[in-house]
Design a binder for these strands. Structure first.
Lengths: 132, 132, 132, 132
DNA sequence: GTGGTCTAGACCACC
DNA sequence: GTGGTCTAGACCACG
């Protein structure tokens, strides 16, 4: 596992874990019926409390992404890929709509908004290229 | 005042107040040197705790949007329009960067992101045209 | 609040709390937009850990039964009644189907199952009459 | 052996094994003094841990369903049929009481509960007729 | 070894 | 005062 957690990110740690697993499932990095790292193992690796990992895993179970196999661990659910892919796209669209809504309410025109967005996109592209 | 506060919105109430005042200044709905409602008056009108209004006004003072006029109350600062316009733009840019960051981390390409954003922009444009 | 929690019940304490609140909403004992007891208050009253109450409340939030109002507490969601009523009925039906399935697989006939169920129903009716 | 084990079922694997053997005895599929598969054999066949099978067999011995025959293995006890039939009935009755208890606590009347149960019974009857 | 639950106590932002 | 999050450590059933 190669994940990066930022505890001072604003987003809750357990939420960061859950999101990254969902993304990994959507991308195919994690495959259905595959066992994920145990609560204790991932907690050790990320140097955080096992309870926090357990909370992330718990949320993923209620979301239907993980299934518990008694005494064995947690595995990616069979129907998780579809759900994660749809959820990812819908989640992003929703957040974009929020931003657009706020921009429109603040008096910007559509073309101004689009231009501003493209600027940020170019900027982020460059930084992540360097970063990775 | 014709604002709408949603206490179950996730965004802090005092933050909602501050933003709406900033937007109003940026748009010209509120003009420089104009007096805004007193803490007690606005609190009564919005049916919220006066502390919360005071906190919003306090933040706006440190942001240079409001100035205190002794014995009169709080007024829009002279240089507030410029500041609000810039702040608005920077705030939106920041939120766009967050969305872009999340989209990139989830494995979408820049062109996919741009396309998705434009879809949402078109959608919002239509709904607000109808709405207004 | 007049609830009864049995820590040695097999069912998790947080689950017992969540269920009882759902039932109370379904019955109309708790009404929409009404504030429920705070985490700390209910924990004190039931003599359990606040975290356990918080967990129950958290689950109810993801189920859409409760909404958080910042700094004020948690309130029954507007659309909770409908959801709880449907959920209650569906949950019971599901558990009945499980029992019926097990009974059929074990070789009993439909009429034997029905007779057995009615016996238990009569028995429980009497004990709860005494109990209450 | 033609059993089906679901490790992600909620019910413990050893419990699933024990129940299925009890049902088989109650139905007459397994006859008294008949030898059952060895721990290792059944574990291999079901692709599960031998410890789990051993645990199921151990429980069945304390329940008096199985008896150990030195050098031969485990066999169905002579008096097992009677016991299994009673146990099956009592187990079902217990689960029915749980469902009834929950239904009563949720505010339904006895006649509503009975009606709901009969609906589910009819439904399950039809599906199992088709299924088998 | 695995996850699931509970307790205890801490810090934070918000009202 | 409120909920939300995190840490630390315990016990349980299960494989």
């Amino acid at each position: 596992m190669f994940w990066h957690i930022d505890p001072a990110n604003g987003v809750a740690v357990y939420e960061q874990i859950a999101r990254q697993i969902k993304y990994a499932v959507a991308e195919g990095t994690l495959l259905p019926s595959e066992l994920i790292p145990s609560v204790r193992e991932l907690a050790r690796e990320l140097a955080i409390n096992p309870n926090t990992v357990a909370r992330a895993y718990g949320q993923l179970q209620t979301d239907g992404v993980l299934v518990s196999i008694r005494g064995m661990g947690l595995a990616i659910a069979e129907q998780a890929v579809r759900a994660c892919r749809d959820a990812r796209r819908e989640l992003l669209a929703e957040r974009m709509r929020q931003v657009v809504s706020e921009a429109l309410r603040s008096g910007l025109t559509a073309s101004e908004i689009e231009k501003l967005f493209q600027q940020q996109l170019r900027k982020m592209e460059r930084t992540t290229e360097k970063g990775s």
